[in-house]
């Protein structure tokens, strides 16, 4: 079962992405002391099972990311992805050091990324909650560092398996001060979209 998307609903999903991640990016700016800005969110449908070119990164390039399960009224899976060089920017800012390669990726570095994801996702959910009155809570993130395509496809396959809507809201964020890009994906569970559109009256 898939919800039909018209232009109004797609716009609403973009706006949800904007409002939710606006707060999340502000939290990241507070945490790092660096100003981060949002790009316009995109609503991506994945109806054929073919992977959309999420993230403008080469398929085999190294990315670092987390996935967190969200329970409650707007249940789904949330993922943050950072190209390796962008993750290194975060590490430099937050712990004043960064691993050279995968072999140096200690638990400290993993927990920094997990914490960034936690703070951002918490703020994202709070933004959605204020707008909709939905109650949600998130589970601790799971961490991965691997080829972009392998990480993305693993997230997508789990979404397919979980009978989620084959839809993702992608938002990129960046900062003019560093060569940095971060990506946020939300894959809502089947039925949640209708609930959301119901609350918004569209």
């Amino acid at each position: 079962m898939t919800t039909t998307l018209n232009e109004l609903r797609t716009d609403a999903l973009r706006e949800i992405g904007n409002i939710g991640l606006g707060g999340a990016v502000t939290a990241l700016s507070d945490l790092t002391g660096v100003l981060f800005t949002l790009e316009a969110p995109q609503v991506l449908t994945m109806d054929t099972g073919a992977l959309p070119s999420l993230c403008c990164v080469a398929p085999e390039s190294l990315v670092v990311g987390t996935v967190s399960r969200v329970n409650g009224d707007w249940a789904g899976e949330a993922a943050f992805l950072f190209p390796w060089e962008s993750a290194r920017v975060l590490w430099q800012i937050l712990v004043q050091t960064a691993p050279e390669g995968l072999e140096d990726l200690s638990e400290l570095y993993q927990s920094v990324i997990n914490e960034v994801s936690n703070i951002m996702l918490g703020n994202y959910l709070q933004g959605i909650s204020q707008m909709t009155g939905f109650t949600m809570h998130m589970e601790p993130p799971a961490f991965a560092a691997d080829m972009a395509m392998a990480v993305l496809s693993s997230i997508l396959v789990e979404a397919l398996y979980g009978q989620r809507e084959l839809l993702a809201i992608e938002t990129a964020f960046k900062t003019p001060e560093h060569e940095f890009r971060g990506y946020f994906l939300y894959l809502p569970e089947t039925g949640n979209l209708e609930k959301l559109f119901g609350v918004l009256g569209i």
């Binding site: 399960r69 961490f143 691997d146 392998a150 990480v151 693993s154 789990e158």
Partner: peptide, 15 residues
């Protein structure tokens, strides 16, 4: 068939 994400709360073990 790898499991890229470590410490998943609900491990589906799809790989």
């Amino acid at each position: 068939g790898g499991e890229l994400f470590q410490n998943r709360s609900q491990a589906l073990r799809i790989g």
